[in-house]
């Protein structure tokens, strides 16, 4: 008789632990081309500690974090507001959809040269890039979420005496939440990827800039520390929005 297998939460950690052990062993035994290109995991962790203790990592991390938070929040809020109007009013959707469809396919980093000329190399540059990166997916997910709400549900609210404002706020937006949170979840991680790229190319501060400086000094351990920070932040942001989405919709979905 087959017994149902019990999957324990710590099983997912096992491959990570094996990977780290292999990494440490390979580097220590010089199986790879030496510590210069692949320092052992323990050395990377040591460097991680030094970078935090010296404040270098914290300063650069905070620079990136502020850019991500401002750009992401602004892009998401504007995307949510415009998406709500475009999803709710057919005429607005028909009017603005062509231009948005033309602009949306341009990758956020594709705007970088143009924005460097328009607004210069300053704090506004990465924030604007993240704004663009966050705006479109949230906009499209909001439009889709609103338009996917069953028309009969809307008509039911209408015949029950609800005004358009009531229908939008109390019926349509709550039902569009799962789609909106999907957009936010995807873009929360993407914002970090974009800010690192922008900082690597044009901005002298932030995690991306730190990586570029480490590259010029051939400090692979620092690069790996930055990548670990980037990975953790992408994961944290994505999981946070997944949790919030679940929190807001799980009791009825």
């Amino acid at each position: 008789m087959n017994r149902p297998q019990k999957i324990r939460p710590w099983w997912g950690i096992l491959p990570v632990a094996i990977f780290l052990a292999l990494w440490e062993g390979a580097a220590r035994l010089n199986l790879m081309p030496g510590q210069l290109f692949l320092p052992p995991f323990s050395v990377v962790m040591q460097e991680f500690y030094y970078l935090i203790a010296s404040g270098v990592l914290v300063d650069n991390f905070l620079s990136s974090l502020v850019r991500v938070v401002i750009g992401f929040c602004a892009g998401s809020i504007v995307g949510l507001i415009i998406g709500t109007f475009m999803g709710w009013k057919e005429i607005l959707n028909k009017t603005f959809n062509p231009i948005i469809s033309l602009v949306y396919p341009i990758p956020a980093l594709g705007w970088l040269p143009l924005l460097m000329l328009w607004i210069g190399v300053n704090e506004m540059l990465p924030i604007t890039i993240i704004f663009i990166c966050s705006f479109f997916p949230v906009l499209y997910n909001t439009i889709t979420g609103i338009r996917e709400v069953n028309k009969e549900v809307i008509n039911t609210a209408r015949t029950l005496g609800a005004s358009e404002r009531h229908i939008l706020i109390r019926v349509v937006l709550p039902l569009a939440l799962p789609n909106i949170f999907t957009g936010l979840q995807l873009e929360a991680g993407m914002a970090w990827r974009v800010v690192i790229a922008a900082e690597m190319v044009a901005i002298p501060t932030g995690i991306g800039a730190l990586m570029m400086r480490a590259e010029s000094l051939i400090r692979v351990d620092i690069i790996i520390v930055c990548l670990i920070v980037l990975s953790l932040m992408c994961l944290l942001f994505e999981r946070s929005f997944a949790y919030l989405g679940q929190r807001f919709t799980s009791k009825w979905k």
Binding site: N150, E152, V153, N155, T156, A157, R158, T159, L160, G161, A162, S163, V171, P174, L175, L177, T249, W252, K253
Partner: peptide
């Protein structure tokens, strides 16, 4: 429609799932 005082029951009842 909101002022006609009509109760409309659609197919599948169309309850508000989030309430």
């Amino acid at each position: 429609p909101r002022k006609r005082r009509v109760a409309y029951l659609f197919q599948n009842f169309c309850l508000f799932p989030h309430m």
